[in-house]
Each structure stands twice: as C-alpha cells, then as structure tokens.
C-alpha cells in the first residue's frame, strides 16, 4: 500500500514537472523568439530639400522596410532609392542618375539601437527616445544620433521622427549650377508603423 502511494506520487510529480518544463519552454520561446520583432515593409520616408522661391525639391517613398527588436531595442531600416517618387519626372531622373547614382548604390540603410528602450513603457502618447547607429547613403556610412517618437499602435508601435542630413557627408556632389536651388541640409521625415 505504502509503496503504491509513493509510486503514484512520483508519477504525479513527474507529470507536473513535464508540464512546468513545457510552460517554461513556451515562455522562453516567446520572449526570445521572433514574436518580439516588430516589422514594417511599407514605412514612409519623405525628404525636403527645397529653397525658398525656387521649385520644390521633395520626394517620398512608401515602401521602406524596418525591423525593431522589442527586447533589445535593436533597429534596422532599408530604403530602395528607386522607390522615391518626385512630382517632376526630370527631378527624379537627376536624383537617381546624377546625385544618388542609384544603379551603383540602390539602397540606403540604417542599423542601430534605441537607447533604454522598454516596450512596457510605450503608451498612446508619443515618447522620445534616442536612436543611435550607422546611416549609409550613397555607399558612405556615417554615425548618427536622432530623436525618435514612439507611441503605441494596434499590434505594435508607431515610430516617427525628423532629422537632417548634408549631401557632402555622403559624398553626394551637387553642381554649383543648381547649388542654390537645393538646401544645404536635407530634412528627412520618417513614419514607421511597426507591427508583429
């Protein structure tokens, strides 16, 4: 009798141990697995390089890719240069052929980290974070630090922000003939709706 009881106990303990282990496995898989990655493939980047009293120099891409790892704050983004659309066809051609040389350098990338990122602190009202990393445009990489506003969105977060870039920092030559028609600092707006 005594012996049977202990055997039963042992089986129950074994079962609960297996259950516990399975639960642990699920938790581990959830926290470190792909479930924590928020992505977008149709992010938005707009840039403005207009000068007052000259023709508008602006373009937009609606097919920007981005990935945010919620546990670490690691962030990566990629935009295809040919995906930028201008209002004026000639401007788009010059942008691709003369300035960005998009046949040679088809993409611009960013790889970095959002400092002190904590997904539990994200609320509906936008909160400022510092995003530090390497920005590569026109085949040239430069370390940048920008402010990113992050707020809660259905199924993920919304990351928006603005920063400025100088063409000469990325070896983009602008001929003196059009120099006064293009701003020294190019204003770049981004808007990523990152979801699971």
């Amino acid at each position: 009798m005594e012996h049977r009881w202990s055997k039963r106990k042992l089986i129950i303990m074994k079962k609960s141990f297996i259950n516990f282990f399975a639960l642990l496995l699920v938790i581990v898989a959830n926290t470190s697995g792909f479930a924590q990655k928020l992505i977008t493939k149709s992010g938005n980047i707009k840039f403005q390089a207009s000068m007052p009293s000259y023709e508008e120099v602006a373009a937009e891409s609606k097919s920007v890719s981005a990935v945010l790892d919620q546990t670490t704050g690691d962030f990566a983004s990629l935009v295809l240069i040919k995906g930028f659309r201008f209002k004026v066809a000639l401007m788009e051609e010059h942008f691709n052929e003369n300035y960005m040389e998009s046949e040679k350098f088809p993409k611009a990338t960013f790889k970095g980290k959002i400092e002190d990122f904590d997904s539990s602190k994200i609320t509906n009202s936008p909160k400022n974070f510092t995003l530090k990393g390497d920005l590569t445009i026109h085949g040239k990489t430069k370390a940048v630090s920008v402010i990113v506003k992050i707020s809660k969105a259905p199924n993920g977060v919304n990351a928006i922000g603005t920063f400025e870039a100088k063409p000469e920092d990325f070896d983009i030559e602008i001929p003196s003939l059009v120099r006064k028609k293009i701003a020294d600092k190019i204003k770049i707006n981004y808007n990523f709706l990152l979801a699971k």
């Binding site: 493939k41 040919k82 088809p106």
Partner: peptide, 16 residues
C-alpha cells in the same frame, strides 16, 4: 510594375 531593388532585411524583391 517597376523593379526598385532587393530588400535584404526581408529577402524580398520590391516593385512599385
């Protein structure tokens, strides 16, 4: 569509 390039992040080709 117009082929705008290869997206290494997701290993996809993009056309617009």
């Amino acid at each position: 569509g117009k082929c705008i390039g290869y997206d290494e992040l997701f290993m996809e080709v993009k056309i617009d």
